[in-house]
Simulated assay, not measured.
Amino acid sequence: MSTCGCCGTPVAPVPVAHRPGLSELALRIGTHRTFLADMRARLSSADLPALASLTTHETPDPAAALLDAWAVVADVLTFYQERIGNEGYLRTATERRSLLEQAALVGYRPRPGVAASTYLAYTVDENAAPVELPVGARVTSVPGPGEVTQTFETAEPLVARHEWNRLGVRQARPQLAADVVAHGLVLSGTTTRLAVGDALLLDLGLALGLTPARVRAVEADPEADRTTVTLESWSGAHLADEVVRATVRVLADTSAFEVDPGGATATKVLGALARVEEGVRAGDGSSAAAVSAALEVTRRELEVARRNGWTRLATWLEESVLRLGRVLPDGTTTTRPGLLAVRRARGDASDPRRSAPTPCGPTAAA
């Protein structure tokens, strides 16, 4: 089809259709060329007989020049209309403000920009007194190939001492009850004189009294100067299961906290504790997940009890959260360090409770 306008066939507007997933939308219904050709074609249209005497379409003619000017106007308008249309979709928008306005439609507001940050290590001369580094102290990076030097400023004041020039990496942490029952007891030194089958009495800091245990394995680490002792319960079951079972038994006794076991809150928590005991009996490793679920239920009910001023319930639930957190593996709930006490049982090895315990030589590594 000719686009010169002489044939009398309109060439604008151009149909617009898009398939999904495009990175850019073509929304222009025409350009300067198509608009001008369309207007020239309409000059010879039968619908406009008054223009039949206009026989020239050359640009120097005032009438043709007017058509050219309006074609320019239409070209500019459709160009910006296409850009505006593309800014209305996340996939096709190129302006940051467009993205912000679209996000605001669903109540989302981006966080403000955050400057880059890094950690600094200062070395102080051994003969120097403590040095105070003020806020805003500048430090520049050493650029690599093709990189640019970056300047950083300290965000907080710092007192630097030469004693801190070579701080070693912390290689140990305080032992918690969950660490002992899940991964074993870590003792300082390698001359523990413990052997497989030896009896130990553990005070895990869970208010469960002394827990009898038997040494299942002893692994010395001379390089770290410590010994890991793997334990099992006196009955031969997994020590963690024994501790969890004892904890559940204590918490399930609501009479000690003067709590009605038939109440709605108590029923929910006792049900969660019962599922913990079922997981321990199953022996399929589901007890840890059951403890985590019971801890979540107890925390929710504790918030309700505090909000409503249920003092007795709150006391019981607080104790439950504390105890369940301490037996949950991986230390989900932090407990005070130093709660662990270990004693070697002397006398008749058939029952470690028959003899008075004496302090064990090694102490727990911190």
Results as ranks from 00 to 15, higher is better:
142 V>L: 03
142 V>Y: 07
143 P>S: 00
144 G>N: 04
145 P>Q: 06
146 G>R: 12
147 E>L: 15
147 E>H: 13
147 E>Y: 04
148 V>N: 13
149 T>P: 09
149 T>G: 01
150 Q>G: 04
150 Q>L: 09
151 T>C: 02
153 E>F: 00
153 E>M: 05
154 T>L: 07
155 A>C: 03
155 A>S: 14
157 P>W: 07
157 P>E: 14
158 L>K: 06
160 A>G: 00
165 N>W: 01
167 L>Y: 01
167 L>N: 11
168 G>D: 11
169 V>E: 13
169 V>K: 06
170 R>S: 15
170 R>L: 07
172 A>H: 06
175 Q>C: 04
176 L>K: 15
177 A>E: 02
177 A>Y: 05
178 A>V: 08
178 A>P: 10
179 D>T: 09
179 D>L: 10
179 D>Y: 04
179 D>E: 08
184 G>F: 01
185 L>A: 09
186 V>K: 11
186 V>S: 11
187 L>A: 01
187 L>N: 04
188 S>W: 01
189 G>S: 02
190 T>P: 00
190 T>V: 14
191 T>E: 12
192 T>M: 08
194 L>S: 15
195 A>Q: 10
195 A>D: 11
198 D>M: 03
198 D>G: 05
199 A>N: 03
201 L>E: 14
203 D>F: 04
203 D>E: 11
205 G>R: 03
205 G>M: 05
206 L>E: 12
206 L>K: 10
207 A>Q: 15
209 G>I: 09
209 G>E: 13
